[in-house]
Simulated assay, not measured.
Amino acid sequence: MSVLIVEPLDAEVMGWLAERHPVRYAPELAREPREFRQALFNVRALVLPPSVTLDSQALHYAPVLKAVGRVSAGAENIDLEACTRAGVEVVRSLNATAQAEAEFMIGALLAMLRRVPVRSEDGLLVGRELSSATVGLIGMAQAARSMAELLQPFGSRLIGYDPAVHASDGLWARWGVDPVGLRELLERSDAVCVQLPYFTRYHGLLGERFLQHCKPNQVMVSIAPSALFDEAALAKVLDSGRMAAAWFDSLEPGTLDPGRPLHDIDTLQITPRVASTTRESRVRSAWAVARRIDEILTAAAPARNNFRPTAPGGEVDLAAE
Score class of each variant (00 low, 15 high):
residue 202 Y to F: 15
residue 207 G to K: 10
residue 198 Y to C: 04
residue 197 P to Q: 11
residue 193 C to I: 07
residue 226 S to G: 15
residue 179 P to V: 13
residue 225 P to V: 01
residue 193 C to Y: 01
residue 227 A to F: 13
residue 207 G to R: 11
residue 209 R to L: 08
residue 203 H to V: 08
residue 192 V to T: 06
residue 193 C to H: 01
residue 225 P to A: 15
residue 228 L to S: 13
residue 195 Q to L: 11
residue 201 R to L: 03
residue 182 L to I: 14
residue 205 L to Y: 03
residue 202 Y to I: 01
residue 201 R to D: 13
residue 196 L to W: 10
residue 216 P to A: 07
residue 202 Y to M: 09
residue 197 P to L: 03
residue 222 S to L: 06
residue 201 R to M: 06
residue 185 L to F: 09
residue 219 V to S: 00
residue 215 K to C: 04
residue 179 P to I: 13
residue 187 E to L: 01
residue 192 V to M: 00
residue 228 L to R: 08
residue 218 Q to M: 12
residue 175 W to M: 08
residue 198 Y to V: 02
residue 209 R to C: 10
residue 206 L to A: 03
residue 199 F to V: 11
residue 174 R to W: 02
residue 224 A to I: 09
residue 212 Q to R: 13
residue 196 L to S: 05
residue 199 F to T: 15
residue 203 H to C: 06
residue 228 L to P: 07
residue 215 K to W: 03
residue 181 G to H: 08
residue 201 R to F: 01
residue 198 Y to P: 00
residue 191 A to M: 01
residue 219 V to Q: 00
residue 209 R to M: 08
residue 202 Y to C: 01
residue 189 S to E: 05
residue 183 R to P: 10
residue 200 T to W: 06
residue 195 Q to G: 14
residue 189 S to I: 03
residue 182 L to H: 10
residue 224 A to D: 14
residue 178 D to I: 11
residue 222 S to E: 12
residue 194 V to Q: 03
residue 177 V to H: 09
residue 186 L to P: 08
residue 214 C to V: 15
residue 209 R to E: 14
residue 217 N to Q: 12
residue 214 C to R: 06
residue 227 A to I: 13
residue 183 R to E: 15
residue 173 A to N: 12
residue 199 F to Y: 12
residue 193 C to E: 03
residue 176 G to N: 09
residue 180 V to S: 07
residue 180 V to D: 14
residue 210 F to Q: 07
residue 222 S to I: 08
residue 187 E to S: 05
residue 173 A to M: 05
residue 200 T to Y: 04
residue 220 M to E: 02
residue 212 Q to I: 14
residue 217 N to R: 09
residue 196 L to N: 09
residue 212 Q to W: 09
residue 220 M to I: 15
residue 201 R to Y: 04
residue 213 H to Y: 08
residue 196 L to D: 04
residue 200 T to A: 13
residue 211 L to S: 11
residue 179 P to T: 12
residue 191 A to R: 00
residue 199 F to H: 07
residue 173 A to E: 06
residue 181 G to A: 05
residue 184 E to S: 11
residue 187 E to G: 09
residue 182 L to Q: 05
residue 183 R to S: 12
residue 221 V to L: 01
residue 220 M to A: 08
residue 201 R to A: 13
residue 174 R to S: 06
residue 210 F to G: 02
residue 178 D to L: 09
residue 226 S to D: 15
residue 183 R to H: 09
residue 209 R to T: 14
residue 182 L to Y: 04
residue 213 H to F: 07
residue 173 A to P: 05
residue 205 L to G: 05
residue 193 C to F: 00
residue 188 R to V: 01
residue 209 R to D: 12
residue 224 A to K: 12
residue 204 G to V: 10
residue 191 A to V: 00
residue 192 V to F: 00
residue 208 E to P: 05
residue 211 L to K: 09
residue 200 T to K: 12
residue 191 A to T: 00
residue 175 W to T: 02
residue 180 V to Q: 11
residue 225 P to M: 12
residue 179 P to H: 14
residue 178 D to T: 15
residue 217 N to M: 01
residue 191 A to Q: 00
residue 177 V to L: 05
residue 209 R to V: 13
residue 226 S to L: 14
residue 203 H to A: 15
residue 190 D to F: 02
residue 207 G to P: 11
residue 183 R to G: 08
residue 176 G to S: 12
residue 180 V to M: 09
residue 205 L to P: 06
residue 181 G to Q: 13
